[in-house]
Design a protein around this nucleic acid. Sequence first.
RNA 1: GGCGACGUAGCUCAGUCGGUUAGAGCGUGGGAUUCAUAACCCCAAGGUCGGUGGUUCGAUUCCACCCGUCGCUACCA
Length: 557
Amino acid sequence: MAAKILVTAALPYANGPLHLGHLAGAYIPADVYVRYQRLKGSDILFICGSDEHGVPITIRADRENVSPKEIVDRYHDRMKESFRRIGLAFDNYSRTSLPLHHKIAQDFFLNLYNKGYIKEQSIQQYYCPTCRRFLPDRYIEGECPHCHRQGARGDQCEACGRWLEPEQLLSPQCKECGSTPEMRTTTHWYFRLSEFQQRLEDWQTSKTDWKSNVREFCSGWFKEGLTDRPITRDIDWGIPVPLPNADGKVLYVWFDAPIGYISSSVEWAQKQGAPDRWRDYWMNPETKLIHFIGKDNIVFHAIVWPATLMAHGDFILPSQIPANEFLNIEGDKISTSRNWAVWVDDYLEVFPPDPLRYWLESNAPESKDADFTWKDFQTSNNSELADVLGNLINRSLSFIEKNFEAKVPPSGTLRDPDRAILAEIGNATRRIGAAIEDFQVRAAVGALMDLARSGNKYFNDEAPWSSFKVDRARCATTLNTTVQLLAALAVLMEPFLPFSAEKLWRMLNAPGSHHDQRWNDVPELRLPDGHPLGKREILFSKIEDAIIEEQIAKLKK
RNA sequence: GGCGACGUAGCUCAGUCGGUUAGAGCGUGGGAUUCAUAACCCCAAGGUCGGUGGUUCGAUUCCACCCGUCGCUACCA
């Protein structure tokens, strides 16, 4: 019976293009998991979309003198295209500026409001009369009351490290325009998060299979004690608060973003022509809800979001939150403002998608931050993908082409080494599957390469170039066995290297699509004797030093 | 400042719920081989497991402190 699984990947914020950090933390691990589950035959839905509200987008729009709408349209389209080209297999990629999402988020808010989980409260907050908006803490600068240096932010002084309240700053200024802000009274709506502390703790206690980074992070928060959180803001870009006395108030972006998972699912169902089908997932206690995120997202997905789901009551809670650490680039942390990043668009101008996927999979920041270097990427492509996996494919297929008219040689009589390598396919299939189900992409892709290494060893040990001269039947058996290994690899590669998996399937001229194969049947997959092979091509080209030097130069520019 | 994470071979990282010779891939050296994208296979060298002290029969693994790197600290999604 097929399991029902609902997978989400963090909604990327639509104020900049996609970079490798995004892919490494959430999207590639999610994609590997989803592609694998599809081959397993699971009933799985993979949901994402752009997160398009919030203050940073309005500020970026002001700076560029365009509307927030123009900003989010630009980046929504770019990110969606980047995802497609790198092979992210979303069932639906939505966006939070859709009217559908606004309606669902407002209904969600009203549901909580009507149940008494939202309270109204007046607070004092800085307002910039020139920019005509209330200022988030980090957009106010001034003199630190402790060390008296300039440039301290409303939340913290970078110089002395002390944590501040905005009103403590001496001679505060609006970071954007430099004007002196004034204190004004404003009203906001607060989610009574504090009421959910016990339920959340009880719930998480049962989640013994969660990653330690998530559990530890949350236990720290529980120790501090959860407090009620404002979930509205005074800006005009966002989802209007659906109450009569709420002009100029919108929902806080962190409140509406995760609801985007639901509205993206609803949009998917509508596109399917089965508008209620999203309920099969979101309202079905048998469904496993899995949120793939980066470590910056842990608190929201493991505490605030489950609490809002509990408050609402109609939807299932997350069953897993595989949070990854961060990716550095050439030793330094990624910074959009310093332009220290490798952008997915730029990468794809020069290279095919799979080598990057492979690097990100075999170096996934699962337990600690990882470091991307172009040199390492080159090595990974050349000496692993090309030399181990690519060469196994190429050496065996070209041998068959030359000596067996590009047809699968007769299997003949199997001997121990042949049986051993075929058994190895079964072992690898199970190992890779178990690792993916345990969210260990590094180990999974490692097991895939181990199988290719075993194949190379087998090929070498059996030395068909020698047996061809003295025992042609034995040579045929070796090649036949190798072809069966390649067919298995074509399917096993799918979650990791989908573009190359497809190509390999075609090179083998195997029937139908590799997508139609079943993961658990891979060990029994056989191409018949005499089966004509397709056109051979190089799956993974080597990357020359000069190309890598160019990329490094571009980064340091 | 508070809380937390990390520091293991040249590089990127596993691992050790305390116990005989600490692992992988890549890189390096040597050997064998030649079908293939000058590669593949075998072997080897290389680590005081950040530092100091403690607990223990025994610590890389537990504890304390120190050094270093980083994250979070509630509006940089």
